[in-house]
Simulated assay, not measured.
Amino acid sequence: MGQLDALPALPPNWPTFVPKDKLAAWLEGYAEYMEINVWTDTTFDGGEYDEATGTWTADLTRADGTRRTIRCPHLVLATGGSSGVPNRPDLPGLADFHGEVLHSSEFGSGTSYAGKRAIVFGTGNSGHDVAQDLHANGSAQVTIIQRSPTCVVSLVPSGTMVYALYSEGPSNDDIDLITAAIPYPVLRDTYQWLTKRTCALDKDLLDRLHAVGFETDYEPDGTGFHMKYLRKGGGYYINVGCSDLIADGEIALRHARNIDRFQPDGLRFSDGSVVEADVVVLATGYDNLQEGVRRLLGDKVAERVGPIWGFDDHGAMRNMWMRTAQPGFWVMGGSLIDARLYSTFLAVQIKAELDGLFPKELPI
């Protein structure tokens, strides 16, 4: 990470992989030093758009219970690339299971499950991280359930190669513009070349995973993990150790297609075998960001905006960093790299609308 995800005035000597607490402290200090008016511990209770006046009314509740109503011409949803609405699949017999069931968003630490038997559904980043944390904190048995083939790359060197340009000398501002200007066909060709390279570098790890039955997928066009991120927002794992635990049998692997149903003491498979468990963690992702809009602003606005993230027919990200079909509503998501570049583009568009310079209809 380091300079890759740098904000203005970030110390130049930061480590490549910044600990979460260090980043959180920096953001808190950044808001103070730059005198940014940030309201933490504030709940968004709902909002409505007045077509006649072109104004949003947003209802907020502060931590002390104070209610505030804000009226503004523009509303920006900046909750990241996920809706925050957990996807909870309807698994057969899950209601009969007598143990604890939680979504990965509710998982805090594996220390609470020391000595217990755990089943983790899902083999994306969250599923692997939860399984590894359970194993590291002494769970008696950890089984990970693969629902679909998963793209796996090593953190170093493969996972960082996609960002190699940021360490080659030019400023972040220049590189941001270069990468944002890459046409979709060129981007696809680049990722195809890169994926061939990463698969060669990770061959030993992938062979070990395949040997225990783990199934991998690098997109039908061979564009790999970063294109999965751009197209779907998930479906990959950047290995920081869990793949090795699976390959070595430290974490057991089973496949969802072989499931029969849950029973009170665990999960039964079609061959009659049972994996006993005390806890089940659903690392099954989140609904599309459109559902986050629905939860905050209702069905009318959500349907008007439509699906968010992934490429549209023109090779641009759908409803992200651009005008949406809902007047005065914008979506700001993605990683810190995306935020550094596209927040400027989004702000310029809002400024243009406020000054009456933005055309009512944009050319296709």
Results as ranks from 00 to 15, higher is better:
K20F: 05
A118F: 07
L10W: 13
E361T: 15
E51D: 13
D355S: 09
Q290L: 01
Y286T: 00
A256G: 07
R295K: 10
N258P: 01
N125L: 09
N239K: 03
A25N: 15
T40H: 12
S343K: 08
V279L: 10
G54I: 01
T55I: 13
H74P: 02
L77D: 04
V186W: 09
E361D: 11
F269W: 06
P89L: 04
C199H: 12
Y163E: 09
G333V: 07
D221I: 03
F329Y: 15
F107K: 03
M227E: 10
Y184A: 11
L77H: 09
T61H: 12
I175D: 05
W330I: 02
E276I: 02
A347L: 10
R340K: 11
D202R: 09
V280T: 01
T40G: 12
T284F: 00
E353I: 09
F214G: 03
R208N: 08
K196Q: 14
E291V: 01
V348L: 14
G47K: 10
A25C: 07
L253T: 03
E353M: 12
E303S: 10
D278R: 10
I364V: 15
V186I: 14
V348K: 11
G29D: 14
G334C: 03
V301R: 00
T198Q: 08
N87Q: 00
M332K: 03
N37E: 13
V76Q: 08
L296C: 07
I119F: 05
F269C: 00
D174A: 15
N13S: 09
D189N: 13
L362P: 06
Y30V: 11
C72V: 14
E32F: 11
